[in-house]
Write a protein that binds this DNA or RNA. Structure first.
Lengths: 115, 115
DNA sequence: ATTTAATGCAACCCAAGGGTTGCGTTTCCA
DNA sequence: TGGAAACGCAACCCTTGGGTTGCATTAAAT
């Protein structure tokens, strides 16, 4: 494993679209659904949804473009599943921010103590 | 610390706007800037920005609505700073998803092994 | 008292996003 | 072989969102 991971969302440019993809209620529900219920077809995923099948298709495409899900064609249906690595990317980015955050708090604390 | 933290973005309904606020490059830069450089006024934060002061103001408002930053009026300027707990919320939510994710992978592995 | 710096507010522009409907295409199945 | 199921595609609608400009307001500075 090299110093710079290929899919590590280290830069803001990469992280923003990832969070944007997560920033929708329907898409988060889809992720939660895939996560707890396993892979599923579009019809299956949109069955208990408030929204139409095409809307779900669009959301899946957004998640796919963000690298969070992927799909394969099986017969006449398309089965979608999660792509674990990308979620780890978001996770890592938040870790990085959190670290800076803590350092900022530490500096602030030191400044206060020095007065 | 009780069982249910007051600001834990446990439900999708709460987490989505949080991620949406993080899903913009300019806003992520603002967060990174506040995180590494400490609190700053609008003029200060928009000084090295490609975008106008009003645009920055709008982004700060979005972050504020998401609970990620807060501001105080000091003289004729308004100073913005980070709100650590909300970022922890996003962090916790990703942790929760990751856990489900891993469980899903475990189940999949077992299914494969049983065949 | 004037000027200047820092913001707030409002109107406006345009592109993107979430949603829908309608119809065509492919595949299963009876 | 003739539906019916599952999906893809395209057009359209309306709202949201990011961005700008212009002007009013408040507070520091000289």
């Amino acid at each position: 494993m090299s110093k710079t991971k290929p899919h590590a969302a280290s830069r803001v440019r990469d992280a923003a679209p990832l969070f944007a993809a997560l920033g929708d209620e329907t898409r988060l529900r889809l992720i939660a659904r895939l996560s707890s219920g396993g892979p599923g077809s579009i019809a299956h995923l949109s069955a208990k949804s408030e929204v139409s099948r095409q809307a779900i298709t669009k959301h899946l495409r957004v998640l796919s473009n963000a690298g969070l899900v992927s799909s394969i064609r099986r017969g006449r249906e398309r089965v979608w599943d999660l792509e674990p690595e990308r979620l780890a990317d978001a996770h890592n980015y938040l870790n990085r921010i959190s670290r800076q955050w803590d350092e900022a708090l530490d500096r602030l604390k030191k400044l206060v103590e020095e007065e």
